[in-house]
Simulated assay, not measured.
Amino acid sequence: MAITDKIYVKNHRQLSSQLDTNIPKGAFKGATLDILFNGGDSLDKLDETTRERVLDFAKDFMDCGCDNAPYCGHPERKFIGYLLELRAQGLNPGAIVDVMGDDYMVYAYEGDILSFLDDGVRTLEAMEELARVDGNEEMRQRAKQTKDELSG
């Protein structure tokens, strides 16, 4: 299961009530993406702080210009990049959860973030070893450096 399947909308019941429609708890579920991508006038029903965060989320992760947007995979890839950037800034999984809640009113369980980061480290270790076996020193060094940065 992808990490974006484990990202949830904070206070989704309150949002559903304000929007007068049911929205899924998952931030990257189809109905949630529809509301964010095509929100229009319905977002005016949200309180100002919530509206700002929802619009920031839509702008930062769904603005790709693809014909299939927001179902093109770019929102999920951008969000994964955001998580990796937070880790690169030295934040631990708990702090990452706090920051994404503050930035976008979404949350995940700390253990899910830790598992995502651990999977990334394991993948980079495999890349490093494959590059070593293949004799590609440049790729091995890049994988090692990225792994070290992700490991903290």
Rank of each mutant, 00 (worst) to 15 (best):
H12N: 14
L84I: 05
I96R: 10
L43N: 12
Q89A: 10
D47M: 00
L114P: 01
E48Q: 06
R13Q: 14
I35H: 07
A131L: 06
Q141R: 12
F57A: 12
R77F: 05
T32N: 15
C66T: 00
G81C: 06
R142M: 03
A95G: 10
G39D: 10
D98V: 02
G152E: 04
A131W: 04
D148M: 03
G101Q: 10
D102H: 04
G101I: 03
E85Q: 12
L55C: 06
V106Y: 09
T146M: 02
K6Q: 15
F28S: 09
P75A: 08
V9R: 11
L19T: 05
T4S: 05
F28H: 07
A88I: 00
L150R: 14
A131D: 10
K144I: 00
E128Q: 08
E52F: 04
G81K: 06
N136H: 10
D47P: 04
M139F: 00
A95F: 02
T21G: 02
L33Y: 05
E129N: 06
G26H: 12
E128P: 02
L55H: 02
G94W: 03
F61V: 04
A27S: 13
Y82S: 12
R142I: 01
M100K: 04
L91F: 09
D34F: 01
N68W: 03
N92V: 02
R132S: 09
I23Y: 09
V106F: 11
Q89M: 08
A58T: 11
T4I: 03
N22H: 08
G39K: 05
R142H: 03
N22D: 14
F37G: 11
A126W: 02
G30I: 06
K6H: 14
A95P: 03
G101Y: 06
A95L: 10
K45G: 06
P70F: 03
F79C: 15
E125W: 01
N11C: 08
H74V: 07
D67N: 13
D44L: 09
L36I: 07
K59H: 14
Y104F: 14
V106D: 13
Y82L: 11
Y82W: 10
D67R: 11
D119P: 14
G120C: 13
K29A: 14
R140T: 00
A131F: 05
E76V: 02
K25P: 00
V54C: 11
I96D: 12
N38V: 00
V9P: 07
G40C: 06
D44A: 08
L91A: 08
F116T: 06
C64G: 08
E52R: 13
N22T: 07
E76W: 01
S17W: 02
E138Q: 05
L150F: 10
E85G: 05
I113L: 15
V99R: 15
R142Q: 10
D41T: 07
L33E: 08
I35K: 12
S17R: 11
